[in-house]
C-alpha cells in the first residue's frame, strides 16, 4: 500500500518536473521562464522526495526513519533556497534593465 502511494507521488513529481521543463522552453521571456523553473521544480521535488521518504520508511525501523527524515530535510532546504535563488536571478535581470515581455510589444516588433 505504501509502495503504491510512493509510486503515485513519484509520478506526480515527474509530472511537475516535466511541466517545468516544458515551461522553461515554451514561455516567452526571461522572467516568465523563471516562473516554471522556480515553482514547478520545487513542487516536483516535494512530491518526488515525499515518495522516496515513504518508500524508505517502509519497514519503520529507526535507521530508515532517520533516512526518511534526512530526505525531508532536503525538501526543507530546497524550499528555502530555490525561491531565493529565483528572486536573486530576477533581481539581477531587473537591475540589468531587462524589460518584461508584453503582448503589445510583440505586435509592434514581430
Amino acid at each position: 500500500m505504501m509502495d503504491v502511494i510512493a509510486v503515485i507521488l513519484l509520478f506526480c513529481g515527474l509530472f511537475f518536473f516535466t511541466g517545468g521543463a516544458v515551461g522553461i522552453i515554451r514561455f516567452p521571456d526571461f522572467y516568465s521562464r523563471l516562473h516554471p523553473a522556480g515553482k514547478l521544480d520545487t513542487a516536483g521535488l516535494l512530491m518526488a522526495m515525499a515518495g522516496m521518504a515513504l518508500h524508505t520508511i517502509h519497514d519503520l525501523s529507526m535507521s530508515s526513519l532517520f533516512t526518511g527524515f534526512k530526505i525531508l530535510l532536503i525538501v526543507v532546504f530546497v524550499f528555502i533556497t530555490s525561491p531565493t535563488a529565483t528572486h536573486a536571478i530576477i533581481d539581477a535581470g531587473v537591475r540589468a534593465g531587462l524589460r518584461p515581455w508584453t503582448k503589445k510589444e510583440k505586435e509592434e516588433h514581430p
Partner: peptide
C-alpha cells in the same frame, strides 16, 4: 537585498 541576506544568514 533583504531576502537574499536573510536566507543566506539562515542557510
Amino acid at each position: 537585498d533583504l531576502i537574499i541576506n536573510t536566507t543566506c544568514r539562515m542557510v
